[in-house]
Amino acid sequence: MGNPAHLKAETSTRKRSAGDVDLPTKTTFDTHRSAAPHRLSKRATCTVPIRTALAVLAATTALVLTGLWVGNNVNMLPLDASSNAPTYDALFKVLFSIGTMLFLGIVILLVYSMFRFRRRAGDFSDGLAIEGNLPLEIVWTAIPAIVVLFVGIYSYDIYERMGGMVALNDHSAMDHMAMDHSVQQAQAPGRVWGGIGAAGMDAAPGGPVLPVEVTAMQFAFIFHYPDAQITSGELHVPTGQPVELHMEARDVIHAFWVPQFRLKQDVIPGQPTVLSFTATKAGTYPIVCAELCGPYHGGMRSNVVVHEPEAYDAWLQQNSPNRTTT
């Protein structure tokens, strides 16, 4: 980089000829400037001194490494308790890494410029009349484009694996759906409006799908197990088996969210939705209503209790109305 005095000398006279430029000490920009102070957009010859190139390379590498390190080591997420949570966390890591690189890169450039190019006392001259640079513009259009394309494709892949791309309306499991008749609806039975189906990555491992009907109302969730004839205020599920929630709201929109599962789905009056997951870690996790639904929206919480399969069977036995009384 040229020293400030040098820059100043150069900027304050425009009659400087292009000949007296000492290349090695200057960056590309400096070269351009002295060669043609105006309209640099029209002349874009690039001669990058080795030292500068190396410095840029080193800085970029450092930035990438920092981003990767941050993405992999700063944990900002709660426990991962469903089979798609690790996938989600992988996406998060990628986004976090890329985000850190971009953010740090831009902030460092900015702060560097603010100090490096600040006006010295008494210097009332202008900076150089650089109005643009086509190759640079192309580079910084292309890089974000490639990044978002990559991110988009990757997150599509993740979503596909979560089961998000399953066409819901011809889903066979919809037969389990019993419409909630409290909402007068003229829907064709079985039509489901959105959510995440069970045909994703979870479908295979746990064998048959466990259907649960969810009714949301101000201000509670009610879970109904059609096979076992159980109705409960808490959701109980076994580990390792895909669960499919058939959800409908009775009054206003609510949303079913389990942070540890990384899954959320609005529960909408008149438009049933579906949400599938496979729990992987036993424990009790909060179910949070995530859509403003009235004064007690903040209090609309419940729990999902994830059991090991045997414990789950025991729970079923205990609560089923047709169990044999002891």
Binding site: Y88, S155, G164, L263, K264
Partner: peptide, 14 residues
């Protein structure tokens, strides 16, 4: 941009 990714947004929406 992170929020724009459906799978990411599903967790953090609202």
């Amino acid at each position: 941009v992170a929020l724009a990714q459906v799978p990411f947004d599903i967790h953090v929406h609202d």
